[in-house]
């Protein structure tokens, strides 16, 4: 352990502001790049499912009938 107390740990020898800012920013960016593709896939699945249902209701074929533009 390089610090004597938790307060020392937060202060980072007077550089706490910079160190914690850097780590916070990293956490935010990492969270974004992890969540963004998953979120995008969910949205795609939801929309594509809606499209397929609609085309089915209209008596179309599954699969090759959904030519709607990319989301």
């Amino acid at each position: 352990m390089s610090f004597d107390s938790f307060g020392d740990f937060l202060a980072m020898g007077g550089h706490g502001f910079y160190v914690w800012w850097a780590y916070l920013l990293t956490a935010v960016v990492v969270a974004l790049i992890l969540v963004w593709p998953v979120w995008r896939r969910r949205r795609f699945l939801r929309e594509q499912r809606g499209r397929l249902r609609r085309s089915r209701a209209l008596g179309g074929q599954t699969g090759s009938s959904s030519d709607a533009p990319e989301t």
């Binding site: 963004w36 998953v38 995008r40 896939r41 795609f44 699945l45 499912r49 397929l52 599954t62 989301t71």
Partner: peptide, 28 residues
């Protein structure tokens, strides 16, 4: 992990006209 996730999404979007993606959409 992040690249694989992104690629998986890209696979679905680009292959959306194939049968397997349609089936997957209705299943999942």
């Amino acid at each position: 992990v992040s690249v694989i996730q992104g690629t998986r999404t890209e696979v679905l979007v680009r292959e959306r006209r194939t049968r397997w993606v349609s089936e997957l959409c209705l299943r999942e």
